[in-house]
Structures are given as structure tokens and as C-alpha cells.
Design a protein around this nucleic acid. Structure first.
Lengths: 242, 242
DNA sequence: TGGGATTTGTTCGTATGTATT
DNA sequence: GAATACATACGAACAAATCCC
């Protein structure tokens, strides 16, 4: 009778309809630094911006809090998380540990199609070099998510993604402005090593790449400035069609 | 003025009052195999059992779903997760990768107090050997969480805990009954290596220990039997005092 | 210090979808 | 196959805490 959208799938780790849509939008806004650590995320404003009720906005905030991107304080407005410096360093350490696993699994096992995807992505990164900083940062993060996806391990993919977003948040807090992710060359070298099947070299390249990214976080950036949430989020509102 | 319980703490990763309490109870029930993969978790029954409304039970289910312990299907009763065999193996791989990090950080850096805690825990594990299988399994899982705590890294602690619970769930599904966690000797050897400061040996011991645990999951267990949720959860209901 | 506006915490009712007889 | 019982999805509303002037 109703052939429309009978999404029956088991909701494992993402995409619970509208809630998942809001989470994706907010993650992207965080990665692109449209919203920054300490910025307030009132349930009402969020709901209005995304065209949903407070219940849905609240669920999204709860999920993001579970991912470490949002801080929930009792009876207070939710804010974008502000990880401490120790936590920041730890986040990178854990991420490196998992991404080593990723490259170890991928070295010498990439299909032709996957190789093409990776090269296409890197090309996109290069094309974005001169443009907006936001696009560069987003693409750099997505490169790592793309690698994780290719392991075909939902577990690994999930944790790498979560840590990738948390690291992006950390960089938003601690990295010097305009020091963006200029590691496209490193991405290219890494893919070359993966295709060559040189696992040891690939792991080593990934190590140094992520260390270099973390290193840029040594200098504390200027404090964030408060702005209007509605305008900040406008470009990140997805269409609600679950 | 009000010196009572002005819990003002930032709710980072756990313990949101009643919701956190329910999550802890359910995690423990899963680890001890009182509830097993596929078992149904209706919001009503859960709420009634823990003395809370559906809203709170729902939040707990949402959080546990985020941790991979519960499966939420649209418009259907939530169930304890039933990971596939591939996912099971992946979960162990990721866990091993993180626990290597843990022992690497701990080797040669344990304080006297921490050494005492570990020995006391192992003594408890040995004492539980003859008793209920549930207690043995729980203590074995908690040993790893205790190690993670000692790194003083909230990030590492969180992911190790999450993966520990997921692995316990996997074993509940795939391990042969009465093959319980008989790795107390391995725990003792690991602690000895940590105290001796032999990082390489400690990492190797952890590797083999977790591999051995995973190995027990090779044989598929008998299918779970349905029972009464109320009675199953009775021992796991914490007092609600948030 | 105080008080009003704002924001969250929670419950409960209704609508909708699923399972079962 | 239809009807009934049941469970979830969502939103409105109220109480309590917090924020801000």
C-alpha cells in the first residue's frame, strides 16, 4: 500500500531519521568551525532551526554528548565541548592507535575502485586548497573516514569517525588560525604506500601524519567570539526527509 | 545556601542520575548474561522495574544503543544487540589495539597503591573461581576497566570500557557455556610484567590474553531461551538516589 | 539582592505502527 | 484477512532551576 519510505532497517549506529540528520549537520558545523567550543546549543533554538520539536533536538544533543562533542550540564544550556589539553592529547593518541589498525588492514588490499575513490578525494582536497578553509578542513577529516569505511568494519569505522570528529574539535580549540590541514601531500604518500602494499611504511606515514596534525595544536588560539546560532547553522540544515 | 546535592559537574561520559543508573544496571546484567542477545527490552517494563517513567527508560535505551549494546528498530521493541560474527571479531581487534595502548602507558609507572588495587582485584577473582560463573565473568571484565582507569585518561577509559562491554556481549552470544573467563593466571602475569616495567612483555601478554579470550568464542552456543524480564532484572535494580 | 524571562526536566496524552488471535 | 491488544513516536504542558538585568 505505502511504498514510500518504509525504512525498516535496524538502527545500529547512525541515521535515526531526523535525529541522525541533526547530528550530521552539527558534526559538520563543528568540523568546519562554524560553531566552536563553548558555543551554546539551546534545545529550542536548535529545534526551531531544524524544524523539529524540542524532543528531537534533545535526542540529538544526547547522542552528540555520548560522542564527546557536546557537554550536557544539569539544568543548563548544552554547549559545544571544550576538551582540556590533556584530553586533547589523549584523543589524538587513541586516534593514532586506531588508524594504525586501519592502514594495517588496507595495505595491499585496496581494490581498483577504492584506489580511484581515494585519488578522487585527494584531487578534491587539492582543488579546495585555495578556497575556503572550512572546505579544506572538512575534506581532510573525511579522508580518514573514507579509509576507515574501506576496511568494511563497522566497529572500526564507528570509532575512527568519532575520534576524527573529536580531533577536529580539538584543533578548533587549540590550533593556530590559518594553520589548516595542509597535509594533502601526506595523504597522497600514504595512499601510494597502501597501494604498493608496504604496510610498515604506510603505518609509519600515518603515524607521522597524525603527529604533525596534532603538533599544530601546540599554540593556543584566540578565544572564540559569540555569534548568532541561527545564522551559523543555516548552511548546515539538511532537508528532513528521513 | 543549599549544601545538599548541588551536582553541578559537567556530565561528560557517564552518570546522568537515573539514566546512568539504569545503564549501569543493564550493562552489568548483560555482562553477567542475565539478559542475552535478542532479549526484548520494552520501555514500559523497564520503567516499571526501575521505578521510572518511559521517558527515562527510553533515554537509557538510547544511550546503550549508542554503545552498541542495544538495537533500536523503528516502532519495534528494543532488544539486546546480536552482533554478527564478523562484527564480533572486529570488536575484539579494536579492543586489543586499545588495550595495548593501556599497558604501554602503565608499564613501569604503577604506584604502590595501584599495585595493591590490582592484586586485591585478582585475589577477588581467585576467590570467585568456585562460585557463580556470573561473578567470575564480571570480575574478569572489570579487571580490564580497572587498568584503563589507572591510565588517568578519560578518553582511553571510555573506549576501553565500551569495547569491554561489547566483547562481553559477544562472548555471551558465541562462547561455549562453562568456558568462562579462566584467565586469572594471565591477569596475574600481566600485572607482574607491568610492575617489572617490561613494556614489551606486558603488551605481548595482553595480546595473547585477549586472543585467548576471543578464541573461546569459536564455537556457537545454544540459542538463548526467553524468560521473564522482571525476574531477570530484579538483582540489577539500583536505588534511584541520583 | 530580587524578580521576571528563559531554559531545562519530566510526565502524560494522542497518533501511528506492529504483532497476534 | 480483519480486529484487537500492545508498543513506540512525538509533542504539549507544567514544574523547577537558572540566567540576566
Amino acid at each position: 500500500m505505502r511504498d514510500e519510505i518504509t525504512r525498516d532497517e535496524t538502527t545500529r549506529v547512525e541515521a535515526k531519521g531526523r535525529v541522525g540528520s541533526i547530528c550530521r549537520s552539527l558534526r559538520r558545523a563543528i568540523v568546519e568551525r562554524a560553531i566552536r567550543p563553548g558555543d551554546r546549543l539551546p534545545e529550542d533554538a536548535l529545534g526551531e532551526r531544524f524544524g523539529v520539536s524540542r524532543t528531537i533536538a534533545r535526542q540529538a544533543l544526547g547522542q552528540l554528548a555520548g560522542e564527546g562533542l557536546v557537554e550536557l550540564r544539569r539544568n543548563r544550556i548544552a554547549v559545544v565541548a571544550t576538551p582540556s589539553w590533556e584530553e586533547a592529547r589523549d584523543t589524538f593518541d587513541v586516534r593514532i592507535s586506531l588508524e594504525r589498525l586501519v592502514v594495517g588492514r588496507l595495505a595491499g588490499r585496496l581494490t581498483q575502485a577504492q584506489q580511484g575513490e581515494l585519488h578522487a578525494h585527494i584531487a578534491r582536497e587539492e582543488a579546495a586548497q585555495g578556497g575556503s578553509e572550512a572546505a579544506s578542513i572538512r575534506l581532510a577529516t573525511e579522508f580518514h573516514l573514507l579509509l576507515a569505511e574501506m576496511t568494511r568494519s563497522p566497529v572500526l569505522e564507528r570509532y575512527v569517525a568519532e575520534l576524527g570528529y573529536r580531533c577536529a574539535l580539538v584543533l578548533s580549540l587549540y590550533s593556530r588560525p590559518h594553520s589548516a590541514e595542509c597535509g594533502v601531500a601526506e595523504h597522497r604518500a600514504l595512499v601510494a604506500a597502501l597501494i604498493a602494499g608496504d604496510a610498515e611504511r604506510a603505518v609509519s606515514l600515518m603515524d607521522h601524519h597524525l603527529d604533525a596534525v596534532a603538533e599544530r595544536a601546540r599554540i593556543v588560539a584566540a578565544p572564540p567570539r559569540e555569534r548568532d546560532l541561527g545564522r551559523l547553522l543555516a548552511p548546515y540544515v539538511e532537508t528532513v526527509g528521513g
